[in-house]
Design a binder for these strands. Structure first.
Length: 149
DNA sequence: AAACTGATTGTTCGG
DNA sequence: CCGAACAATCAGTTT
């Protein structure tokens, strides 16, 4: 039973089942894992996972926030994916939409109201980039109009 | 051969 | 509100 820790990807679930949005930690994993592997090849996933967890605590909060933002994007995509999934036949496979209850405004972001607030100094976080990304979307200067409650 | 396991943390959804 | 489940990954183990 694949229910414990591993990601069992079996036909138990609908083929179109949208996978859950990856968390910041997972995004971090995908970035660091290859690096760790490079550093120590032949490590089992378990060992690597521990290393990642260790590094995760070591990364600056700013870095974490950066991943969280990315994760937030993934989340939004997840909403879209889920919408498509439901539209597509919802139940998967079948084609018929029994649970088409519907009705709901197509777009309603849950966390909608706002996005995360960024640290006061946005540009200061230069150290975060291990490599250079010319201009990606990572730190967008910009408009943060946020309000704190 | 192919499904399952393990280990990490975070997020998501249901009861 | 709390907790179970599941997300990636890949080598090793199991059926």
């Amino acid at each position: 039973m694949p229910r414990g820790s591993g990601a069992s990807r079996k036909a138990t679930k609908d083929p179109n089942a949208p996978k859950r949005p990856l968390s910041a930690f997972f995004l971090f994993s995908q970035d660091e894992r290859p690096d760790i592997k490079k550093k120590s090849p032949s490590l089992s996933v378990g060992d690597i996972s521990k290393e990642i967890g260790l590094r995760w605590k070591k990364v600056s909060d700013d870095v974490k926030k950066r991943y969280e933002q990315k994760a937030a994007v993934e989340k939004q995509k997840y909403e879209t994916r889920l919408a498509e999934y439901k539209k597509s036949g919802g139940g998967g496979g079948g084609g018929d939409i029994s649970s088409a209850k519907g009705s709901k405004g197509p777009s309603k972001a849950s966390t909608s109201t706002k996005s995360a607030k960024k640290p006061a100094g946005k540009k200061s976080a230069t150290k975060a980039k291990s490599s250079d990304e010319d201009n990606d979307d990572d730190d967008e200067d910009d408009d943060d109009d946020e309000d704190e409650e």
